[in-house]
Amino acid sequence: MTVAKLFRHETILAILTVIAMIVLASLSDKFFTLDNLLNQGRLMAEVGLISLAMTFVIVTGGIDLSVGSILGLTAILLGVFWHNVGLPLPAAILLAMVCGTFAGWVNGLIITRFSVPPLIATLATLALYRGLAEGISEARSVRGYPEWFFFFGQGEVLGVPFQLWVMGIATLIAAAILGLTPFGRATYAIGANEVAARFSGIRVDATKLWIYTASGFCAALAAVIFVSRVTTTRSDMGTGLELDAITAVVLGGTSIFGGRGTIIGTALGLILIQALKNGLALSGVKGDGTIVVIGLVLIGAILVGALFDRNRGG
């Protein structure tokens, strides 16, 4: 049992990440520097935050394709509330985040109340939220934010990028909730067998509603950090982010069928992808080559994990 535990997906992934780090560091002396690694953390934070909530979503056996659109919608609303409506910026940020969270709640409502499969529900809201962002903004950008606002996306605390702190704290909270609380156990139970979970008294719908709302919240939080990092809002922000997040979560060993997965795995998946993107670029591989490598690693890592799994499971 202990040997088998050693070969959990996360362990394999950790080993793979370390190997990748060593190889990449030997390919480029610019890779393994504190400066670069911290900077990569900065670039990773938005996808990272979304992936945390996505882990919960996928553990329940669901999926949320609308996160990229929620990010875009929140960003646009932030700009519109501040610039066009004339709210003070802190109020605009808060209100935009409330709206983003609400968008996640609507996803949850459609999925639980009307029992629409999550893939379809969020496919529809993917188009809807992006469309709202385009319509509300009329495709115009809002720029010229005050200097203090850029702290969220560009500032540092104790030498570490601000959003890396946010990301770190959020990871700890997410890991604690999923691993240690009744809520986490309910999440796994729903993913493993929803009907059984319902019969054993778990409040399935309420749990799911919370999770999709949290997914909206994380996307909204990521939006604020993103806007602060790039100093402007655009209605096409976050396009395609959902696939990046899902890739990280799945690479992290979360089963797409639900019931299995950890926050640690997701974090490792994120780190591995970001390290590959950055390290390969630094060692002179072009972007199109990097995409191919990431595709191969994704299949390869899951393949290895599945093989060990089968040996263990018999």
């Binding site: 696939l243 797409i256 199109d288 995409i291 191919v292 299949i299 093989l307």
Partner: peptide, 22 residues
């Protein structure tokens, strides 16, 4: 291999796309 199809095809998406551009 029982790898979920979404994972294989996500990977395939990257490989085909990157390969085509290359």
């Amino acid at each position: 291999t029982r790898i979920p199809s979404i994972v294989v095809t996500l990977g395939m998406l990257s490989i085909l796309k990157g390969g085509l551009i290359s």
